[in-house]
Computed example of a mutant assay.
Amino acid sequence: MESIVAALALLIVGYTVGSVRIINQGTEALVERLGKFHRKLTAGLNFVVPFLDTIVLEESTRERVLDIDKQKAITGDNVSADVDAVVYWRILQLERTFYAVENIEEALESLVTTTLRSEIGRMSLAQTFSSRNEINQALLHQLDEATATWGVKVTRVEVQSIEPAPDVLRAMELERAAESKKKAAISEAQGKKQAAIEEAEGAVQSMKMIADALKSQPNSREIMKYLVAQRYVDASYRLGDSPNSKIVFMDPKALTEALSELIDPNAPPPSQHPLNPPKE
């Protein structure tokens, strides 16, 4: 009798121990009874029926990271590029994830790759560089809709890099260099134009000031002679000081006559000047 009681006690203890399941925080488990889904075990102390219930899956429900390797994609302007991304996702309904899809990570990777290629194909190469946030948001929206029946939630998608082929990169560098040279040439031309305009305006303003000043002077003719002579001396000095200066031979008589004519347009021609009688 005592042996029967001991056997029953041992059986009860074994049954009790076998029915206890402890699930860690951030983890859930699926229980099947006689091959059919029965219930889901959450974090903490849980009990199952030995021999009838079987724990078929114990999985984390924390957020995970899925790194997508570089994939070939064709942009809207037919440029080949290597694109990679990283996806953050988590399981919301473990029973759907287990029974709706065979391998959730493989399914997610295939879906992200297809969606990423499709989104890149809608843009030109230049747009892909400047619209990274738009691509991320479009991928997140499409993936969230596609994975709703799998019991998972895609929380964030980040396109890490978009790398065109080396020959395309070289062509882009040459194009950028040419564009920079063009902008520099335009800026230099505009600067020279503005400088010339300002110099001309300054010369006009200077001439106007000189003319106004000479109007009020009785000896304006002598002042004009002095200014012309001063300009001539300055020009001669700059010509001689220049590293590539040239020697210019000028007849002093002709120079004097030219200056006289410039100062006094009403003066008689050199051939009729009293100091220059005509040659016979």
Results as ranks from 00 to 15, higher is better:
Gly191Phe: 03
Gly14Tyr: 10
Gln137Gly: 01
Leu174Thr: 06
Lys193Ser: 12
Asn219Asp: 14
Lys70Cys: 00
Arg238Pro: 00
Lys253His: 08
Glu261Pro: 01
Pro270Gln: 09
Asp53Met: 02
Glu119Thr: 14
Tyr237Ser: 10
Ile135Pro: 09
Lys192Arg: 13
Lys36Cys: 08
Gly151Cys: 02
Gln160Pro: 10
Thr149Asp: 13
Glu158Gly: 03
Met250Glu: 14
Ala146His: 04
Tyr237Asp: 10
Gln142Gly: 02
Ala85Met: 02
Arg122Trp: 03
Glu261Gly: 05
Met123Ala: 11
Asp69Tyr: 11
Phe37His: 08
Asn276Gln: 10
Leu92Cys: 11
Val56Lys: 04
Ala196Asn: 10
Glu280His: 05
Ala203Thr: 11
Glu58Leu: 13
Ile55Arg: 05
Gly121Met: 12
Leu8Phe: 10
Asp264Val: 08
Arg96Met: 15
Glu158Thr: 15
Asp82Ala: 07
Ser161Gln: 14
Ala85Ser: 05
Trp150Ser: 01
Ala235Leu: 15
Val204Cys: 03
Asn219Lys: 07
Glu198Asn: 13
Tyr226Leu: 06
Val233Lys: 13
Gly44Lys: 02
Leu30Gly: 03
Gly26Arg: 07
Glu179Met: 08
Phe37Ser: 05
Asn136Ile: 04
Ala126Phe: 11
Met123Asp: 09
Leu140Lys: 04
His141Arg: 04
Thr155Arg: 04
Ala100Glu: 11
Gln230Met: 14
Val233Glu: 06
Ile263Gln: 11
Ser260Val: 12
Thr16Ala: 09
Gly26Trp: 05
Ser110Pro: 04
Leu116Asn: 02
Gln230Gly: 09
Gln217Cys: 07
Ile162Ser: 09
Lys253Gly: 12
His38Lys: 05
Thr115Val: 02
Glu198Ile: 10
Lys246Tyr: 08
Arg122Asp: 02
Glu188Ala: 12
Thr75Tyr: 00
Thr113Lys: 12
Thr114Arg: 08
Val48Ala: 05
Ile120His: 02
Val228His: 08
Leu139Glu: 01
Glu145Ser: 13
Lys253Ala: 08
Ile263Glu: 06
Val20Gln: 04
Gly14Phe: 09
Val79His: 00
Glu163Phe: 10
Gly202Arg: 15
Ser216Ile: 12
Pro243Gly: 01
Asn78Gly: 00
Glu105Lys: 02
Ile23Lys: 07
Leu259Lys: 12
Arg221Tyr: 13
Glu173Lys: 02
Lys70Tyr: 00
Asp264Leu: 14
Ala184Glu: 13
Arg221Trp: 12
Asn276Arg: 14
Ile120Asp: 03
Ser131Asn: 15
Lys72Trp: 04
Phe51Thr: 14
Arg132Tyr: 09
Val233Ser: 10
Glu95Lys: 15
Glu257Lys: 11
Pro277Ala: 04
Pro268Lys: 07
Gly18Thr: 08
Pro50Val: 12
Ile162Gly: 03
Lys36Thr: 12
Asn133Glu: 15
Ala6Trp: 08
Leu139Ala: 01
Ile104Arg: 06
Gly35Asn: 03
Trp89Gln: 02
Val168Ile: 14
Ser220Glu: 10
Glu173Arg: 02
Tyr15Met: 15
Ala85Phe: 01
Ser118Thr: 10
Ala196His: 06
Ser19Met: 03
Ala29Met: 06
Lys36Asp: 11
Asp53Ala: 02
Leu30Pro: 03
Glu63Ile: 05
Asp234Met: 11
Ile23Leu: 07
Ser180Lys: 12
Met207Ser: 15
Ala7Gln: 07
Val154Arg: 06
Asp234Pro: 03
His273Ile: 09
Asp264Tyr: 12
Ala81Trp: 00
Arg122Thr: 13
Arg62Lys: 13
